[in-house]
Computed example of a mutant assay.
Amino acid sequence: MATDALTLLLEERDWLLADGAMGTNLYNMGLAPGEAPDLWCEKHPEKVLELHRAMIAAGSDIILTNSFGANACRLRLSGAADRVASINQTAARLAREAADAAGRKVLVAGSIGPTGEIMAPMGRLTETEAAQIFTEQAEALKAGGADLLWVETISAVEELRAASVAAKATGLPWVGMMSFEPGGWTMMGVTPAQLAALVERLSPRPTAYGANCGTGPSELLRAMTGFAAAGSERAMIAKPNAGVPRYQDGGLIYDATPEVMAEFAILARDLGVRIIGGCCGTTPAHLGAMRDALQTHARGPRPTPDMIARRMGEAMSESGGAKTD
């Protein structure tokens, strides 16, 4: 019988809306270029809380903590490696505060990104060391009130295995995502089919898995067709960047409009994706359009790769954006 909050919510709902970008939205709220977004949990908690509230108001059922890079390896670059526990606990508490005030069920997902190091044998970081790094972060997120661990933008098999060790250590449910390049594999050569097979061998297995980030919604949908073809019955997650960025009027603007992301959301749902959201460049305005589209458009047939290319191309053209195919 299901016991964790994510599984229970998935049993109640056909789809869930995850939130949008943390770093790029904070950048447009004043985060300095090169400044670690995670540090704003303690430096500007009111702005992090404001962003969480905006994501919830746009309809998010799952909000991610502002802790994507808050592991010891990445924080070392900012001279904050000794603050892993405090930053992650604060990140989770801020998200928990926003979720608890929502007036409806909103889950807090503890965001865990890659270490930023190359895994052995190509690099120096061992799987055991990565597991220790992730566990330190995961335990702090749990202490701050996270409902689950949200492991994202991973490219190596070894790093995802290490993250599963952290999930086991905390006892929290978890989900795992990799980021796929236009050629159809991660930076370290993992294909969607290989990820679909990998998650079934992990212990504990993730409640859901999928893809995030990348070069935009069209490319990410191609990865999702690979998961669907693998035949896995595990819940899938799709959380792409809102296209590609450009610098405009002192901020970062991505070329996938809310209308484009709404079309993506419909296609993802029709592919069988259960958790749909956005990564870099995805604003509350994008999320609002995605939720409206999911609520008002009837489920259609499972889209083919050709259908995806055509409909996403048309959406980009109608919105004035550049085609992503």
Rank of each mutant, 00 (worst) to 15 (best):
G103S: 09
P303C: 11
R161V: 07
D292T: 15
P204T: 08
H286Q: 04
G321S: 11
L160M: 15
G113A: 09
S317I: 08
E263K: 11
A167W: 10
F68L: 10
V175A: 07
G214P: 06
V165P: 03
E200L: 13
E181W: 05
L267E: 07
S60W: 02
A289F: 13
A18N: 04
V175K: 06
L26C: 01
K43V: 10
L49R: 00
R234S: 06
R274W: 01
A140N: 03
T296K: 10
G288L: 11
A146I: 06
C279P: 03
N25C: 13
L77H: 06
A208I: 14
N88I: 02
A289P: 07
W150R: 00
G110F: 13
G281S: 10
K47D: 01
A289R: 12
Q248S: 12
E139N: 05
A163C: 12
M188V: 08
A130I: 00
T257N: 09
T7A: 11
L294H: 06
R53S: 00
A315Q: 10
T324Q: 14
A120S: 12
M316A: 06
P240V: 09
L202D: 05
I62C: 04
T186S: 10
F227Y: 14
T282I: 08
P204R: 11
L172G: 00
N25E: 15
D61L: 03
R205W: 03
E314I: 07
P258L: 13
T153P: 12
M187R: 10
G103C: 12
K47Q: 10
A101I: 00
A95Y: 14
E158D: 13
L294I: 08
L10Q: 07
L8Y: 00
R13I: 03
P284G: 03
E314V: 08
S317A: 12
A211F: 03
N28I: 04
E127Y: 08
R299Y: 05
A99G: 10
Q295D: 10
G183K: 14
Q295P: 01
E314L: 13
R83I: 09
N71T: 12
E136R: 13
L198D: 01
